[in-house]
């Protein structure tokens, strides 16, 4: 379970203070597919970073899979990220001088029980692109390599920050399908943040943030298949 208790985050730039998150209380069950929606500056990424042990709260506690991250020093946070979570970003963040397989292997190395690199690439449908460099792949393919790198270590949770933000609708749906499949077949908790409300349709649960507070938290009784959604209005 992921639990945020009275979590606030204040960024200070010079004399200016910005409240990114205000007193958030939240529980997310393991194995859920959660979409966090919200406009820019609503605190989505800040919340994701805290759940993923990339950032600390200014106040409150963050507990993920029984580990109280808000009390952890940097070393233990690294250990936590290493063991339990995978990240997918809008910008793919691949190492340009490594092939697809090598990028995935970088992710596998930190796990005690990783999938085989070829298996991870197969999960994202890129088994034939193992020896290609990122610049030889399309945006969607690069994002799928990034997903393979995140899942290869068998994370309990996958945190995705605007994973389809740079992709067109067709490719974006493919990527979402991969995430959905991982969630269903591997029982991986998937948390996707996006500003695209259409994506919310595929989630088990949708949390809407606005100005640092939870504006809405609802469950989808029948999550949609990614292929069936439309990004249009």
């Amino acid at each position: 379970m992921i639990r945020l208790k009275n979590v606030s985050k204040v960024y200070q730039t010079g004399l200016v203070k910005t409240d990114a998150l205000k007193n958030i209380d939240l529980k997310i069950e393991e194995g859920n597919f959660v979409v966090i929606l919200g406009p820019s500056g609503s605190g989505k990424s800040t919340m994701l970073n805290m759940m993923g042990a990339l950032d600390f709260p200014s106040e409150g506690t963050v507990e993920v899979f029984g580990e109280k991250l808000s009390d952890y020093p940097e070393k233990k946070l690294v250990q936590f990220r290493r063991s339990h979570v995978g990240f997918v970003f809008q910008q793919y963040n691949l190492l340009q001088t490594l092939t697809a397989a090598e990028n995935v292997e970088i992710g596998a190395h930190v796990s005690k029980n990783p999938y085989a690199v070829s298996e991870a690439l197969e999960m994202v449908g890129l088994e034939d692109h193992a020896d290609k460099y990122p610049y030889e792949l399309s945006g969607g393919e690069q994002q799928r390599v990034s997903i393979a790198r995140a899942v290869v270590k068998r994370p309990k949770a996958l945190f995705c920050d605007e994973p389809t933000g740079s992709l067109d609708e067709t490719v974006a749906k493919k990527v979402l399908s991969v995430l959905k499949k991982l969630n269903e077949k591997m029982d991986t908790t998937v948390i996707v943040i996006t500003h695209n409300p259409s994506i919310a349709k595929i989630a088990d649960r949708v949390i809407r943030l606005n100005s640092g507070v939870v504006a809405e938290d609802k469950k989808n009784a029948r999550p949609a298949n990614p292929e069936d959604i439309s990004f249009g209005p």
């Binding site: 990339l54 070393k75 690294v78 250990q79 936590f80 990220r81 290493r82 063991s83 979570v85 990240f87 963040n93 190492l95 970088i106 992710g107 930190v110 790198r149 270590k153």
Partner: peptide, 12 residues
């Protein structure tokens, strides 16, 4: 950039 990426993945 690579160093930051490795950190994010969980490398010490």
């Amino acid at each position: 950039y690579n160093i930051a990426l490795f950190k994010m993945i969980g490398y010490h």
